[in-house]
Design a protein around this nucleic acid. Structure first.
Lengths: 141, 141
DNA sequence: GCTTGACCTCAAGTTGACTTCAAGTGGCAG
DNA sequence: CTGCCACTTGAAGTCAACTTGAGGTCAAGC
């Protein structure tokens, strides 16, 4: 099995070694040995880091991500859970899309006062609604 | 001009008053007086809070958002900035979409080892690419 | 007049995800 | 053998965006 030392992993993944050590500390990845003091990793850790980065993009916390992979880095979630996550992502995507369109609209809207624009107003209502909802459900956190 | 005291604003905006005080402290909103000790706000502050929440959803920091309002609270939106933000959202949406598809795929793919699946591999390449890119541009932070 | 409860202030604490620091270590080139 | 330099450690620091806590104040209802 080809081993990479931490510097190499850092280079290949684009992450600083301090981050790699941190990820190991919190249990996201595992080193398999040492070369002197230097941590050594199995090659697949690079793939695993890519997955982690993907999870982060999706807005998952490191803790969440930790739960999605077995220690070898392969996804380890029951199908139902995966579908749930996918559905949640769908929601998120829809929200962001709306927001993006609104942003573009506002950027182009010629009206000097955005408040007159019906599109803008609808957007604000949406924003107000979701603020309210978020703080309402924050009781369960 | 109708004045709302902080409790009313909190209720209408769905934000805790601690947050409202914080927002005032950092200069995002302004109170216009006191009723006893109680801060009082002009009614339009509620609209302003909706805008702020919108900005947050779009990924702007409070500092960014602060720059988008004149001192009277009317939006003063930099069009170029909005377009940039919209582009960033596009990126994020694309990433999330890919992730969602991948999740769905993983949930259904019968292959025991996902690493052999071309779809999965493509996804991971993308993830690796964007990790590298992000840390490359993180030099400018 | 007194109590109550929602507010006040200021300081400190929290969270997540890292980064930075000081002091030390060890493989390897010369 | 010597020095270098990329690594090591554990602890502490950072950042944004709030939240919490302790102790105080005041308008309104009884």
């Amino acid at each position: 099995m080809k081993l990479l030392d931490i510097g190499t992993v850092a280079e290949q993944s684009g992450l600083p070694s301090s981050t790699l050590r941190y990820y190991e500390e919190v249990g996201l990845i595992q080193s398999v040995g040492r070369h002197g003091l230097r941590r050594q990793f199995d090659a697949p850790v690079v793939t695993q880091l890519a997955l982690i980065s993907l999870g982060k993009m999706a807005g998952f916390s490191l803790e969440d991500i930790k739960g999605m992979f077995a220690k070898d880095g392969t996804p380890q979630l029951p199908r139902a859970e995966l579908h749930l996550r996918a559905d949640a992502l769908d929601q998120q995507i829809r929200g962001l899309t709306r927001l993006r369109d609104a942003l573009r609209h506002v950027a182009e809207c010629p009206a000097e006062t955005h408040m007159d624009c019906p599109k803008f107003k609808r957007l604000m209502e949406f924003a107000a609604r979701s603020t309210a909802k978020r703080s309402a459900e924050s009781t369960r956190r």
